[in-house]
Design a protein around this nucleic acid. Structure first.
Length: 288
DNA sequence: CTGCAGGGGTAAA
DNA sequence: TTTACCCCTGCA
């Protein structure tokens, strides 16, 4: 691991707040100077915006340019995606203007699975706290600029952790889920690498649903936010339900609208960009 | 100060 | 389809 720096220029779709606060990740923390520091695999990276330059510094294995290009999906043309979505209707256009700097990250599949199991019926500050404690206790320590950071624990590192130990970390009723899912992955009952090779999103979703603590919402989040990188999903939580009902369905009691109906409208309107559309709508509705 | 609903759902009844 | 679940926060 070596200290490195990479400067990205002329990237319009890249706003720190939009990327890190849109609910897709839990391990990036805002610094006093407005930059964000976070963990990518075994590396520690700081991202800063100065004028129109995006500056990445940090310590990581391999070339930092390759690491961030992959993680931030820098080769994807978000201008084109936004153009397509903005043409669908004015609601989308407004939400895209609001979250114009969003990029969907390529997060490690294993880490995303565990993180979103923890996210169920939970709020972001608490989710972040749990993941931080989990990493501190079972991950590897990295030191950078006189500060200590911890990598996300591998399946091997969580293999022997008991339900009681999870409980102590404040996982609540998710303790047993984490235990069972880790076991399934370590024993190769589900093969994560194989999943990445399967182009059929619905098949992969079905397999994710066999994991303990993974229901439809969490499965969709994993498909969208991990390096499975599927945009033809539509995670429906209370906020998405709210925004979809307000804009397109207009039912008095939003609770009554079935997920199936919401999904149907999403795919009809947004097609195979539904996942990204969801993110703009979600972020816009929740933040504003 | 105490009580209680509700939070980026899931699984079991 | 309904309900309990852990823990923290906000608010009456």
């Amino acid at each position: 691991m070596k200290e490195q720096k990479y400067i990205l220029k002329n990237q319009n779709s890249f706003e720190l707040k939009d990327i890190f606060e849109c609910g897709q990740c839990f391990r990036w923390n805002k610094q006093e100077d407005g930059s964000y520091t976070g963990i990518i695999k075994d590396g520690i990276i700081n991202v800063k915006k100065e004028n129109e330059n995006i500056i990445f510094t940090g310590k990581c294995d391999g070339n930092i340019k390759d690491v961030v290009e992959y993680y931030f999906d820098l080769n994807r043309d978000y201008e084109e995606i936004k153009q397509k979505l903005a043409n669908i209707d004015n609601y989308l256009k407004t939400s895209i203007e609001y979250g114009k700097g969003i990029r969907i990250l390529n997060q490690d599949l294993w880490e995303t699975i565990i993180s979103f199991i923890i996210s169920a019926n939970n709020n972001i500050p608490r989710i972040k706290g749990i993941i931080e404690r989990l990493s501190q206790k079972y991950g590897n320590e990295i030191e950078w600029n006189e500060k200590k950071y911890y990598t996300f624990p591998t399946p091997e590192q969580l293999k022997k952790v008991t339900v009681e130990e999870y409980k102590k970390l404040g996982l609540g009723f998710r303790d047993i889920r984490l235990y069972e899912t880790t076991k399934m992955i370590v024993e190769n009952k589900v093969n994560l690498e194989k999943m990445k090779c399967n182009p059929n999103t619905q098949e992969v979703k079905k397999e994710l649903l066999t994991l303990s603590g993974v229901g439809p919402k969490v499965a969709d989040c994993i498909l969208l936010f991990s390096d499975l990188k599927r945009f033809d999903v539509f995670p429906i939580d209370v906020w998405v339900r709210r925004v979809m009902n307000d804009l397109y369905i207009k039912e008095n009691d939003e609770e009554k609208v079935s997920k199936l109906k919401i999904e149907k409208i999403a795919y009809e309107k947004f097609g195979d960009l539904a996942g990204i559309a969801q993110q703009y709508l979600f972020y816009w509705r929740r933040e504003s």
